[in-house]
Design a binder for these strands. Sequence first.
DNA 1: TAAATGCGTCGAAGCGCTTCGACTCATCCT
DNA 2: AGGATGAGTCGAAGCGCTTCGACGCATTTA
Lengths: 335, 335
Amino acid sequence: MVTLAEVARHAGVSASTVSYVLSGKRSISSATRLRVERSIQDLGYHPNAGARALASSKSNIIALMMPLRTDMYVPVMMEIAVAVATTARTHGYDVLLLTGEEGASAVRRVTGSGMADAMILMDVELDDVRLPLLRESGQPAVLIGLPAETVGLTCVDLDFVATGALCAEHLAGLGHRDIAVIGEAPAVYERHTGFAERTLEGLRTRARELDLRLLHRPSDGGYDALAATLARIFDERPGTTGFVVQNESAVEPLLALLRRQGRAVPEDVSVVAVCPDPVAVQASVRLTSVAIPAQEMGRRAVEHVVAKLDGHGTDGIELLAPELTVRASTGPAPA
Amino acid sequence: MVTLAEVARHAGVSASTVSYVLSGKRSISSATRLRVERSIQDLGYHPNAGARALASSKSNIIALMMPLRTDMYVPVMMEIAVAVATTARTHGYDVLLLTGEEGASAVRRVTGSGMADAMILMDVELDDVRLPLLRESGQPAVLIGLPAETVGLTCVDLDFVATGALCAEHLAGLGHRDIAVIGEAPAVYERHTGFAERTLEGLRTRARELDLRLLHRPSDGGYDALAATLARIFDERPGTTGFVVQNESAVEPLLALLRRQGRAVPEDVSVVAVCPDPVAVQASVRLTSVAIPAQEMGRRAVEHVVAKLDGHGTDGIELLAPELTVRASTGPAPA
DNA sequence: TAAATGCGTCGAAGCGCTTCGACTCATCCT
DNA sequence: AGGATGAGTCGAAGCGCTTCGACGCATTTA
């Protein structure tokens, strides 16, 4: 392993000079700089991460904490993770992957050991157990998702209230009056992840304003669960012509069941989904949808973290504006 | 930040003693051990990762390199990543997440800087550009997937040849004679990821032995692409009654299209999928499938890595035996 | 009973880097 | 002309930990 000292010797300068060439924290004559850079090339030098971390108290690592349950929103989580990793690299950081498994103790472990300079928490619940620890650790952190109490925290999330409103507006604009919301699985509501509730809130508020009738039914994914949910909906509100789906794994079953019942999409019923764009595009009917901007969320989270680490940090909540893309699953309400 | 020295002072022992308590590398009287452990608790001490890495030349980090393209096999990749992370933790390692973005240079960066003690590479291609660098770096590594040249490497993968054979056997056993294989997207073959070819090889070999007629058609995911593929298949081999699908995103479209054509599954045609179990279970028809044991792959990869780091490493290829689960999508061939 | 062994502990020497203060010139100002 | 300034470089002091050799003492062995 080539060390700084060897580079210094090879270039005929002192170790500190090499260090300053690397960091740019002091001015170096271009002659020296060039010589040092050549030596670095020639010897194939790579700074030792541990030594660097020890001396500078900076690891150049951002810890990313994934959700505990990996059974849900998989594509979204994956996209976020990848976006975080690639964005982090462009800022000179690497990403340490933590699973929720360890729970709150991971926060302590990582902050305590100086392993990471900051944390990004995904899938934050309204009353997340990790937050107290995070707060007391004083480590820079950014949440993806919105907890109940956000004082002193930096959060990034899609504006789900606006998302709900947008869906309501779109359907109302097409003349639909009876809207059914196929919500997330009951387990999601029990966990109080928040986003489901917020979407619903947006839907309800706007629906009231627009004089829509709204029916909300949580549903597990899969065909059987959805068949039951759907039957119930049409029993209770036979006149339902608009659907809002927020559960990825309910999308395809819903379309299939509607087809099977002879209800054409979008002629008889319209469907708006809240899901990542790829899901909307690949469905059996190209779905009008509000995209979950997973990449953007990951990117913004990293940018906030980096800003904090650079000193010009800003606490607060960034809600990304939802965008609705009209595709083939919505149309005018039947007469 | 609490340091080793402070713990030592608090416990009334020397720093080295604390270190030995922590590492267990020398015997310590239980009285001393207890005293030190209490001090650690009381002070809330966490060893500094950088210092540790520097002094011991061990980072206790495993780098996991994800594929470049995040558009494919997402659930599989995610499962592997999570399994890697959790398994690594049980062995005292953390996981550094690298995206393929950086490509081969990431290998150099990570090995050169001593950031990680070992690497796990996912989505290895037959002629992977990262391999030469990996070899020359001499860093312990495990591949998930099978490259063309495996000398001196440790690889973990599903035995795709056996997987193909298994599918052929199952369909043959049910009396099917004309089998169509809906392969991965053409792009996958162009990248020579290997597993698609190997499945096909297993299918072909066994099909020949069992006197099956095999038709192989790559297909992009999505309805339109698949509709074309399917039409072609039935044009060329109207008597086709068995399908093998290896492309997750083709599963649902295939089922929908078959339904639309009035072909009942499993009465008229049988479908075997190669996909993670959750996908098979959640499909509109519960699919007979060979599972892709993503978790197992991640786990085994870590275990190999850890074994190497502990000295009792073993190069070689571990192919996980495929298991076929019969569900509702296969049945006897129509008379 | 003397020598050998092993246990439990300590001190000190690094690991490879960053960073602070100090030093040497050359350049500037008045 | 003399002091002040700044650019460019160096030496040395750590950062917090691991690990090696050494030492004192209690046991064992011949």
